[in-house]
């Protein structure tokens, strides 16, 4: 029976699903990576995603303009990020707990706005799959990789860009310096709080986009709490990736592919209880880390508010 998994139809199905499912993890995970590399842990990703998802959905619902929807998600996500930055950088609040606070706020607020402004579950016509000329014609794999929606392409384009910014630009150097040794960065004239304000706000923007990728591209609906823990998985995947953008990509793809696999396992009627099928991505993510023992260490100043001495 297990061999029924290894047909072209199933493998391509898993690949396509995995690529799609990984999209929100990529946005949120990359955003979180920037924050953590500069020393700020944001556990509020889930709340930012929900508010971003709602903002995008509502804007599209009102105006019919998808780009305004994206703008709304960016603005709302950015505002949430800015608030997180204010609380964790300026007010030096404990980051883990303030993140949980922002998560609860976003969870409740997006629901409240949904109930007062929309009242019931509705749909929008979001970003449609966009076949890339020529590339999408490649036999077999073309439709898998090159017939996705704009926000999916953008998520994967973000990976090399984010990696370049982080590792090959002055900005990236500043971010890493602030996360590793804020005192030294400060003495060299880098404003620790300005860098952290930037990364945490950017993280909020990306979380907002992650939400928008669900509400106006992949699902085209908004429902209360629709992210359903996705934001927390995204944070976990940053650890999986060892604070490297490529690692986040690997983690997102692994988690999503296994999730797609378990759906197929059920569809093919393999004799595995559905609960165990659903467990698979969570178990395998841990197993993958056990097998490939990592030697990375977190940014030294992670979760430590910076206080300039003297």
């Amino acid at each position: 029976m297990i061999e029924s998994l290894f047909t072209a139809q199933v493998l391509l199905g898993i690949l396509t699903s995995g690529i799609r499912l990984a999209t929100p993890y990529l946005y949120a995970g990359i955003g979180e990576t920037f924050g953590q590399r500069s020393g700020v842990l944001n556990l509020g990703v889930e709340g930012q995603m929900l508010l971003g998802a709602f903002a995008a959905f509502y804007a599209v619902r009102q105006t019919g303009n998808l780009w305004l929807g994206l703008l709304a998600a960016i603005l709302v996500g950015g505002l949430m990020g800015l608030a997180m930055a204010f609380v964790s950088v300026t007010l030096r609040a404990k980051q883990g707990i303030s993140g949980i606070g922002f998560f609860l706020f976003g969870l409740g607020m997006s629901d409240l706005l949904f109930q007062t402004l929309l009242g019931t579950v509705q749909t929008v016509s979001g970003f449609r799959p966009l076949a890339i000329p020529l590339l999408s014609r490649i036999p077999v794999l073309g439709p898998v990789f090159f017939n996705q929606s704009f926000l999916v392409y953008a998520a994967y384009l973000l990976v090399p860009i984010a990696n370049y910014v982080m590792n090959h630009t002055t900005l990236g150097l500043k971010i890493r310096a602030v996360g590793e040794n804020p005192e030294a960065a400060d003495s060299l004239g880098v404003s620790v709080s300005r860098v952290r304000y930037f990364t945490v706000t950017l993280g909020g923007v990306f979380s907002g986009l992650a939400g928008a990728s669900l509400s106006i591209a992949l699902l085209n609906v908004f429902q209360q709490g629709m992210t359903s823990g996705l934001g927390f998985i995204a944070v976990a995947l940053v650890y999986f990736g060892g604070w490297r953008v490529w690692g986040v990509l690997a983690g997102s793809l692994l988690f999503s592919m296994v999730n797609a696999l378990q759906l197929w396992v059920q569809v093919l009627g393999l004799p595995i209880p559905s609960e165990f099928a659903v467990m698979m991505p969570y178990v395998l993510t841990i197993v993958a880390l056990v097998v490939a023992v990592q030697r990375v260490r977190p940014p030294t100043a992670l979760t430590k508010p910076f206080v300039r001495e003297g």
Partner: peptide
């Protein structure tokens, strides 16, 4: 009961099948 994204992907899997 709440994972809209996974429900969506489950439907995609059915489409694929």
């Amino acid at each position: 009961f709440g994972d809209v994204a996974l429900a969506s992907e489950a439907a995609q899997t059915h489409v694929g099948a």
